[in-house]
Nucleic acid binder design. Structure first.
Length: 317
DNA sequence: GCATGTCAAGTTGTG
DNA sequence: CACAACTTGACATGC
């Protein structure tokens, strides 16, 4: 891990990607729409979107500072379709490339000054354990994009799932290990693994993470949906040791089930976090926890209030 | 204007 | 065997 953003102690709650009430929006486009344009037209459109999104990120960080929120997950398509095989591009190709890079630098400095911890969570198409060399190759390319952007923005971690099982978890993790060793340094130094809600439990991942010195992002909602023999306390503590070994503040995820724990499918996320779902053993820790809730910054603020961790500077309504 | 269908990519589990 | 669910919109199209 490159840096430990924190000089603070205690719990830090993070927002995932989007805002509910704040007027901050990120734009995107599709490959199909781009392919209807000549190349020069594609690049003009992409340049506008990238500049807009970089400015939106800057506005997002300012809003987070105002709200007293100490962590932010940046959406992966900040620069839409950048690694697409047919319409992909580099900063040098964009008319506003210099302005975009300048804005990223402004964001990096602001986040550093205000101690806002940044993360990435590339989506489900990044699968390093796949038996398909094609899938692995495009995954590595996508991670390289995240690594490049992470260096520009001072992003702490790039968090992914272990991927598919393909009938043999051990063999799948073996493949993951081989790919991990050869990742470019900006990616390798930031890569973390997260337990998921269908395949890989904390117990599956912890020995692997220990062996390869990869921090585990412990998602307690996934653990409750996809349990193993570990208690929440034990999983939290063993994950904490991995972060400590890297000299980095621990990172976790929390969410509540939309339809309740007794419902047939507790996996979908609710608008807000039910305080009972927040593990007691997390309250006294120093760590970052992303709040995966549909009400976005409103849910983060409510949980901060419920946990009594609003700071004097940021108690505003 | 507003409603609706569509959007690069993987894997798993369900109907 | 086809399709929805993960993250979950936002955009493009057509009325």
């Amino acid at each position: 891990m490159q840096l430990a953003t924190s000089s603070a102690s205690g719990l830090r709650l993070g927002l995932c990607c989007l805002f509910n009430s704040e007027p901050i929006r990120f734009r995107t486009t599709t490959a199909k729409a781009l392919l209807a344009l000549p190349r020069a037209g594609q690049l003009i459109k992409l340049s506008e979107l990238c500049l807009h999104n970089a400015k939106s990120l800057q506005a997002a960080l300012q809003a987070l500072h105002r709200l007293g929120i100490g962590a932010f997950r940046i959406m992966s398509p900040l620069f839409p379709r950048m690694t697409h095989p047919d319409v992909g591009y580099g900063m040098d190709d964009l008319p506003d490339g210099d302005a975009i890079l300048t804005t990223l630098e402004t964001c990096r400095l602001f986040a550093q000054q205000q101690l806002i911890r940044l993360s990435f969570h590339p989506d489900q198409f990044v699968v390093l354990s796949s038996p398909s060399t094609q899938v692995v190759a495009s995954s590595v390319q996508e991670l390289a994009y995240h690594g490049w952007l992470a260096e520009k923005l001072g992003v702490d971690l790039i968090n992914i799932h272990a991927g598919g099982v393909y009938g043999d978890k051990f063999a799948a993790l073996q493949r993951l290990a081989e790919v991990f060793e050869d990742l470019p340094e900006p990616v390798k130094s930031r890569l973390t693994l997260e337990n998921d809600d269908v395949s890989y439990t904390p117990q599956d991942l912890l020995p692997f993470c220990q062996k390869h010195q990869i921090p585990l992002v412990y998602d307690v909602h996934h653990h409750r949906c996809n349990p193993d023999q570990l208690t929440i306390e034990a999983a939290t503590e063993q994950a904490a040791e991995l972060w400590a070994a890297k000299g980095c503040e621990q990172y976790c995820h929390i969410s509540s089930p939309k339809t309740g724990w007794g419902s047939p499918n507790p996996k979908p996320h609710a608008d807000y976090i039910t305080l009972d779902d927040f593990p007691d053993c997390w309250r006294s820790r120093t760590m970052t926890t992303d709040v995966e809730a549909k009400a976005k910054e409103l849910a983060v603020r409510r949980l901060m209030s419920d946990l009594n961790i609003l700071t004097a500077n940021h108690c505003q309504h």
